[in-house]
Design a protein around this nucleic acid. Structure first.
Lengths: 254, 254
DNA sequence: CGGAATGTTGATTATATTCAACTGTTGTGG
DNA sequence: CCACAACAGTTGAATATAATCAACATTCCG
C-alpha cells in the first residue's frame, strides 16, 4: 500500500535485519569490491553501515543531494537518472541486487550527480565513505579492488557516452536487446524480458517512449523480433547484432 | 616535412631528456596523483617510465590498441576521441600539459576506448601500470589519490554524458564558452581563445563544424559574442550563462 | 604561388521530439 | 465485482533540430 510518503526511510518493521550486523556483513561481503578483503575488515566496515528500505517509486536520493555513502543494493531495483526538463529524464543505469552506485560522489564527498529512484521495493545498504577511505590505507587488496572497480565504472560510462553519441536510436535499441541476451548465452532464437517499463527503457536509451514504441514496431515489422508485453522474442539475433554494430544493415557491397 | 609516419615513436633527437630520469621524475611529480607521494616513491615510478614524442596530427594510440600505461602529457595538446563513421568523430576530452589520460584502461589492461591524437607536437610520459599497482600497496596516500583521481574522472565523464544528452547544442556551446572563461575569473566582458580548431571544438561539442559555425553566428547576431578567428569576445556573460543553464533564453514569463 | 586544410553558407533531408488523441492495464474502493 | 482513476503504451500529424550535401571562401604553409 501507498500510505508511506515518497522517500520515507523505513526502518524494518518485522524482520529485525537492521540490528543484525551479520546480515549487513553478508550483504557487503558479496560485493565485488570486497571480494579479496578479509572477513575481519569486512566486518569492520559493516559496523559503520546501515540498511535502508525504499519502497517502489520512492526517491532514494535526488540530484544535488548529499550522498551518505556508497550505496549497495541488497535486493530490489533502482534507476539512476539525469533529470531533464520537468518530468523528463535520461536513465544512466539500472542497478540490480549486489550492485553498487555512488562510489565517485560519496568518496569525494560531492553531491549526487543523479536521481536514484527505486523501481521496486528495495533494500539499500549505505556504506559511509570514511571507513572505506581508512580501509584503503589498511588493506592493499581492497585499495586495488577499489581502484579497479572505479576504473570499470569509468569505462562503462565511456561506453554509455559512446552509445549516446555514436549510434542512432535503432542501433542503441538493437545493442541493448543484445546486451539483455548475453546474460544467458542462448542460441539463435531467444526471449528476453525488459527489466523495467518501456518508458524507463526508453529513457535508458535516450529516446522518448513514443520513439521506442515506433522502433520496436519497426523491428517487429522487419521480422527481427516480436513484442508481447515486456517479453521480446528475438528471431534473428545475427541481423539484430549486425544492425547494432555495423551501422547500416542493408546494401553493403559484396 | 612529413617523412615520419604517423604514430612514430620519436626518440629525442637533441636534448637527451629520454635518458634523464630526473626529468621524468619532475614531470610526473607534478601530476595531481603524485601530489602526496614521497619523492622516493615518485623516483621509483619514474625508473619504469619512458617519454615519447608525438608530432602534431600523429595518432598516439588508436581505439582498440593496447595501452602501454597511464599517459601523462609533459607538454603539448592531445584530443581523445570516439571514432564514428569514416573520418567522423566525437571528441571526449582535450588533454593539456600536466594532465593524464588512460588510467582506467591501462590499470585494467584493457584496450584503449578512444583514439588519442596529438593536436600539437607533444611529449608524453608513459607510466606502466605494474609499478603503479604495486605502489598502490606500498603507499596509502597514493592509493587514496588514485582513488580520488579515478572518481573525479567518473564524475567528469558523467557531466559529459549529461551535456550530450540533456542539452541542446546552443546550450552546450554556451556552457563550453563559459567553461573557457572560468579559468581566469574575468569580469563582464572578456575574451577567450578556442583551444583547438573549430572542427575539433565542434567534435568536442558533438556537432558538425557546419552547425558550430551557424551557432556561433547566431550568438554573434544576438549580440552575445563576437568571433574573430579563434578569439571570441564575450559581451554578455550573464545572458550566455542563462542560455547555458536555464534552457530557453527568451521570453521568460513576466 | 599553389595546394591542403579549415571554415562558411545555403538547400535539402533524416531523425527524433512534441503534441494530442486514444487504448490498454492495474490497482482501489464503493 | 464493477467503476474509475492513474499510469503505461500506441499511433498519427506537425515540428524542431541538426546532419548531410554541395559549393564556395579563407587561412595556413611550404
Amino acid at each position: 500500500m501507498q500510505q508511506t510518503p515518497s522517500a520515507r526511510l523505513v526502518q524494518f518493521n518485522g524482520n529485525g535485519q537492521r540490528r543484525d550486523p551479520r546480515w549487513l556483513e553478508s550483504v557487503i561481503s558479496y560485493l565485488p569490491v570486497f571480494r579479496r578483503t578479509s572477513q575481519r575488515h569486512v566486518a569492520g566496515i559493516a559496523t559503520y553501515c546501515r540498511a535502508q528500505a525504499v519502497r517502489r517509486v520512492a526517491l532514494l536520493c535526488g540530484r544535488g543531494d548529499a550522498l551518505p555513502g556508497v550505496m549497495a543494493l541488497a535486493y530490489g531495483f533502482v534507476k539512476l537518472a539525469l533529470p531533464r526538463t520537468e518530468g523528463d529524464e535520461r536513465v544512466v543505469r539500472f542497478v540490480g541486487a549486489s550492485e553498487t552506485f555512488g562510489e565517485a560522489a560519496a568518496l569525494l564527498d560531492r553531491p549526487s550527480p543523479v536521481d536514484a529512484v527505486a523501481l521496486a521495493d528495495s533494500m539499500v545498504v549505505v556504506i559511509p565513505p570514511r571507513p572505506l577511505l581508512e580501509l584503503l590505507e589498511l588493506d592493499p587488496n581492497f585499495a586495488r579492488s577499489m581502484v579497479c572497480s572505479l576504473a570499470e565504472g569509468s569505462l562503462e560510462l565511456l561506453t554509455e557516452l559512446e552509445a549516446s553519441v555514436r549510434q542512432r536510436s535503432v542501433q542503441r535499441l538493437a545493442d541493448y536487446l543484445g546486451s539483455l541476451v548475453r546474460r544467458r548465452t542462448d542460441p539463435g532464437v531467444c526471449a528476453v524480458r525488459l527489466p523495467a517499463t518501456k518508458t524507463a527503457i526508453a529513457a535508458r536509451l535516450g529516446v522518448t517512449k513514443e520513439t521506442l514504441s515506433r522502433l520496436l514496431r519497426e523491428l517487429a515489422t522487419r521480422g527481427l523480433i516480436e513484442v508481447a508485453r515486456n517479453e521480446i522474442m528475438i528471431f534473428d539475433r545475427a541481423r539484430l547484432a549486425e544492425l547494432a554494430g555495423g551501422g547500416n544493415g542493408s546494401g553493403g557491397a559484396a
